[in-house]
Design a protein around this nucleic acid. Sequence first.
RNA 1: GCGAGAGUGGCGGAAUUGGUAGACGCGCUAGACUUAGGAUCUAGUGUCGCUUAGACGUGGGGGUUCGAGUCCCCCCUCUCGCACCA
Length: 824
Amino acid sequence: MCNMKYPFESIELKWQKYWKDKKVFKTDLTKVDNKLYVLVMFIYPSAAKMHIGHWYNYGPTDTFARYKKLKGFNVFEPIGYDAFGLPAENYAIKTGIHPQDSTLKNIKDIRTMLERMGGMYDWDAELMTCVPEYYKWNQWLFLQLYKKGLAYRKNAPVNWCPSCQTVLAREQVLADGGCERCGTTVIQKNLTQWFFKITEYADELLEGLNKIDWPEKTKTMQINWIGKSYGTEIDFAIEGSNEKIRVFTTRPDTLFGVTYVVLAPENELVQKITKPEYKDTVDKYIESIRSLTEVERTSTTKEKTGVPTGAYAINPINGEKVPIWIADYVLATYGTGCVMAVPGHDERDFEFAKKFNLPIKKVILQPGTKEEDELIEAYTDVGIMINSGKYNGLSSDMGIEKISDDIEKQGLGKRTVNYRLRDWLISRQRYWGTPIPIIHCDKCGEVPVPEDQLPVVLPYEVNFKPDGGSPLASCEEFIHTTCPKCGAPAKRDPDTMDTFVDSSWYYLRYLNPNYNDGMFDTELANRWVPVDVYVGGAEHATMHLLYARFIHKFLRDIGLVKSDEPFQKLIHQGTITNQGAKMSKSKGNVVDPNEFLSKYGSDVFRMYLMFMGPYELGGDWSDKGIVGVDRFVQRTYTLFENYKGIASDTQAKSKYEMNELSPDEKKIYQKVNQTLTKVETEIDNFRFNTAVAALMELLNELKNIDNCRKEIQLYTLERLASMLAPLAPHLAEECWSLLGKKKSIYEESVWFEADSEALVNETVTIVVQVNGKVRTKIELPVDTPEKDVRNFVFNDDKIKSYVDGKQIIKEIYVPNKIYNIVVK
RNA sequence: GCGAGAGUGGCGGAAUUGGUAGACGCGCUAGACUUAGGAUCUAGUGUCGCUUAGACGUGGGGGUUCGAGUCCCCCCUCUCGCACCA
């Protein structure tokens, strides 16, 4: 018995070099039969090290890609770097190291780690977003959007992170009001900013979800984020004024129940309609609201506040006069910023009316209650309309249609659709990003940079220390230019783009990162996109994954791609935590993979990460079980060492007849083939933990492989090496060559089909139960006729002792599984 | 508060359509080989009884069923997502 320890270091290097030298993983993109685009979200090189989370993301995905390659797919698995962004710049502010220098260095280190991991990446397709060759096309994309009116500038209240010194899109603000990147509480600021009109695609983004194979949860999040709702806009006249209040409601059926109207404090009508004697309190109230953050204001737990304006509105349906209030629970940014309040049938209005003693009117009768019953809470479901004039007696869902019809007929309003989705704020007051290709000219206004002048290169020499404004604004050489239209001196836009712009189309660029004639090679994109399997964190559900879908649809509309969606199937890996907390540098609880890599090697490490549990669940980090995987690897290596060179003088058939095998051979033969199907279905479904377990079971079963004929030994070991290859690529290559194989397992894409005849066992264990309790088990040939099974069962002494003298009520036989006798 | 998911040995976790609960691994126990073992191999390992028969057992309580980790109802805990969207 040879017991040499598996020399992972030399073996891993050896095969990495082999793959690289022979370009084993270079994908021939011209071949599209059997194409499979497997993509993992590219890496953010804010630190030189790949932590456990990266390994957990990339290792298993690579295993999936490798498995598909072995199965004969033409797999494209690229990797790249999401290289722009705040952390590099913040790091620069702290240390003085230029973002470009630190980023390029980090990329170099990460590349080394990815190679060490044994990633099957096509290194010819590698890209990074911080080079002009890439970001030039961000600018080009911007200009296309601009041409179509989908990139525009507006003055708006925006989310400002005081720490990052920049604005954030709404989805980049956390639920607790913190900044997505740094956690600092975000405040509101009024600024002119660039937006992409994602709302133009709201409906399509919603509908497209039906066509893609994504986790339901993620789709739901996007649905909620888009927040489409059907309703009616209704005009309320203002007493003694020509102004009108247009409200948006999803419940026009409750129009008779309106007892007051509420405006958002920011609504411009407020200043116009407020009665002089109320002006003081209204202004004071608005001031008090301003000091609150968005989150404080919209917190559902906070008690609602508001003040009357002294003005009155006229309910168009019955001419009733109702007071106009302003309140913080009405948002200026949703609907029309005005609400008709129906306390009887809306929880928020109910709470508000109770607090300020406003009347509550019942106009929808809850089934099973009486009209005179007092409302103790708002009734928001369907019911029978009451106190509603000619609509009385109608079901309220009918009432929605009828009242909307009548409102429309009388020109008092119209049906509309509202979205929660807002346009995507893309400007950032930061240095390390793509410059916005716009020039501001005193005479011509905003002028797009002509396409032939792209890229607008990000200058290297810039003072990027924070002083409140965009760093580029103080870079004289950059900012001063001439107007492309009139030639007069003009200024460049000093802002840079959100890095989510970069990641919205990178999957198209991978196909040819050096392409010069356009944003990407359209021909290739139409053959390879959508991405077949996309793997990445669930935290991108409403950001990256929504933006990328939007940009993809836009690119389709300008004729650059034919597909509707960028990512056909989506998988989220789980999060690896440490003692229950997310690993982060600031918490100081990051686990360094290097410790394990130097002790066990990368095959063991990546296999252990897969073995820990279900991929989509993640879990708490613990190195407790890693020795188990290491032992498995050692035993496997030893086994192959013992059969060194076996392939040189032996040949295995591709299939054996079961009856020509010895008992030991048969057992092993069956197990090998059963494992083949098991490993296939498990990896196909990203269940790596059970795939590894299946291989461990197989190895345990190979105790008696010495008793097999040589050809059966070879038959077995060939298959074991092949199944091992996706999970432990270096080890498997080594084992394969130990057998005496000349070529790499991946050069030939070795995968074996299971022999279906070996999958079923000849005998089965039939569990015999009495009253549902297991009493004995009997081993019988598969498909023994029921009457024979019954005979065996009733001749069993133990069963007899349970059944004798009792009345048999029922017998249930589930073929090849269970025989249950019910007695009394 | 609303929505989604989860709760299984000392631990990580397995378990087609309801059909042997605890695969695989860690840990632990005993033994073998050894100068030694924190290496390796062999056997055992849900709990109680502990030799047997057996009883109990998948967060708690109830139900459907010949049979429930799996289906239904109620409750508890945890994780994630959304936070007044009219």
